[in-house]
Design a protein around this nucleic acid. Structure first.
Length: 410
DNA sequence: TGTCCACAGGAAATACGGGGGT
DNA sequence: ACCCCCGTATTTCCTGTGGACA
């Protein structure tokens, strides 16, 4: 009985002092579509992204006068609300079309995880219910034909929304050729592509035969500034945190930091969440110090997580650089790294890859930010990539430890 | 001025392994 | 059970190159 009372008391305390009331609002992944819509409406009320929504409206308004709008390319850095805004807009659009009796079909695809042309076309066909998931062995042509057959009868507006289109690996040309040239001529519906990308220049290396056909309009989502972020964070605090436990200046600090560093709302909210979590563990209010701590913790986590999910060969490549960099003054060149790599690969019972491929792996590591490489010439002593580790030893230690252990469990 | 190092990185060839047909 | 087709992953082959050195 006493224990029970004690427990009840603890629960009472916890409920009174906890900071996080509803943690779902600190992580968009956990929110349902209605709640997301709700957040977005609040944002519009705060005059954020209103202009962009307006532009979307204008672009698609001609539909209702039986005019065919151009394609639409949407740009913007990660976390600027491109995807959410566009998705919500599509929902609104499709409701409006329905009420006005206009045939309109919306297909949504996303390449958040990088996709090969094969996987993309496979998804496209699946979305139209004319195919199952395949892993290999089916011709691109077959998916395209299936998709076209499925769409042949439809004569209304067909909107194809592709998120993160810049994430198509290898030959993205086949995809564009299909979407921009082939699809519109072989189906009877009026096709409008909405292509979302976080790179401004992804249309640059488009085949001229395709790009001349590509009538488009651009829409740019600018990064959030400190004022926007402050409004966004305030909304989240309102929904998810116990306001009394947030010290003055905390959200201002997060907003200022985030707008300076990246203008990414998702990251700003993640920082708030981490700070709240750390404060809760310490049983204190969220202070400015918590924000600083949270910031470095997130930084560390980011690299560790990236390192753990890397393919095995690339992990080995990283280890080879790491171990040779620590003995030779932090700078390695490709040849040295490769020798160490071969030894490591044998130790782990893995077939070593060629040096050509090894240097490709290093390039991928460079992209993740785990190493930095620049190509230099040492005159008579050759031309090579000079590779170094950009981060502090503590982080690197941790990262390599995690890689070692994840290699063992495979 | 030319040579030559130690690779970079492009292109073509080959290996791999799932898929359908038979 | 076997074969051929497919897209992707890796290897093989190769040409290119910035600058120290003789």
């Amino acid at each position: 009985m006493e224990l029970k009372e004690q427990f009840a008391q603890n629960v009472e305390n916890y409920l009174e002092n906890r900071i996080i009331q509803d943690k779902r609002y600190l992580d968009d992944e956990q929110l349902g579509p209605d709640e997301k819509a709700c957040i977005l409406r609040d944002l519009f009320a705060a005059n954020i992204r209103e202009k962009e929504f307006q532009k979307l409206n204008q672009h698609f308004a001609p539909i209702f006068a039986d005019n065919h709008p151009f394609h639409l390319c949407i740009y913007g850095k990660p976390g600027t609300g491109k995807t959410v805004s566009t998705k919500i807009f599509c929902e609104v659009l499709s409701e409006l079309c329905e009420s006005k009796n206009i045939a309109c079909k919306i297909i949504q695809l996303n390449c958040t995880t990088p996709k090969t042309p094969f996987q993309f076309l496979n998804d496209f066909a699946c979305e139209l219910n004319v195919s199952r998931k395949y892993r290999k062995g089916v011709a691109h042509e077959e998916f395209m034909n299936k998709a076209i057959d499925a769409l042949k009868e439809f004569t209304g507006y067909l909107i194809v929304l592709v998120d993160e289109i810049n994430n198509i690996k290898y030959d993205s040309g086949t995809i564009f050729q299909f979407l921009i040239r082939r699809l519109p001529t072989e189906i009877n519906s009026k096709l409008i592509l909405i292509l979302i990308s976080n790179k401004l220049d992804w249309t640059d290396n488009l085949d001229p035969r395709v790009s001349s056909f590509f009538k488009k309009e651009d829409l740019y989502f600018r990064p959030y500034n400190a004022v926007d972020l402050l409004a966004i964070l305030k909304l989240r605090v309102e929904k998810s945190l116990n306001k009394d436990m947030v010290e003055d200046g905390v959200i201002e600090k997060i907003a200022a930091y985030s707008s300076r560093e990246h203008g990414d709302a998702r990251k700003a909210v993640a920082l708030l969440a981490k700070a709240a979590q750390m404060a809760e563990e310490k049983n204190s209010k969220i202070t400015i110090d918590c924000v600083d701590l949270a910031e470095s913790a997130i930084d560390k986590d980011k690299y560790i997580e990236a390192a753990e999910t890397l393919p095995r060969q690339i992990q080995l490549a990283f280890l080879s650089i790491y171990s040779s960099a620590t003995i030779s003054n932090n700078v390695v060149c490709t040849g040295q790294g490769y020798e160490v790599y071969q030894k490591l690969a044998r130790e782990h019972g893995v077939n070593p890859i060629t040096q050509r491929r090894y240097s490709d792996c290093l390039k991928e590591l460079d992209l993740t930010g785990l190493i930095t490489m620049r190509i230099i010439s040492k005159g008579r002593y050759g031309r090579t990539a000079e590779i170094s580790l950009p981060m502090k030893d503590i982080i690197m230690n941790k990262v390599s430890e995690r890689i070692e252990s994840s290699l063992k469990t495979r």
